[in-house]
């Protein structure tokens, strides 16, 4: 039974996080940006669970639990904001939502 080294999980997590960053900076649709942020949350959660397993300490699981709770709250408020913006501007393109621009 060959186990997976910790580095593999860290590399996978880093790759997923980087893909999320590229999604945030290169896409213009606010919903896709939101989903990229969720992808970055997931990458960080993988790191926490992996370290938790390799340090044999369950504190990381509690952290992931808290991240999931905050992500649920963020989903409710964030999607409500997206709907409110869409109701005012009839677009979800972040380039056209620029009334805060000085």
């Amino acid at each position: 039974m060959e186990t997976v080294p910790l580095n593999f999980y860290l590399i996978l997590s880093g790759v997923l996080f980087a893909i999320g960053v590229v999604g945030v900076v290169s896409r213009r649709n606010v919903i896709v940006i939101y989903m990229s942020i969720e992808l970055m949350f997931n990458a960080v959660n993988l790191t926490l669970v992996a370290f938790s397993r390799f340090l044999n300490d369950m504190t990381g699981h509690v952290f992931v639990f808290m991240v999931i709770a905050v992500a649920a709250a963020e989903a409710a408020v964030g999607l409500a904001i997206i709907i409110a913006v869409f109701r005012n501007k009839v677009t979800v393109d972040v380039d056209e939502v620029n009334i805060l621009k000085g």
Partner: peptide
């Protein structure tokens, strides 16, 4: 990774 790349 494939799903993440496809997503963006």
């Amino acid at each position: 990774i494939f799903a993440a790349v496809s997503m963006i």
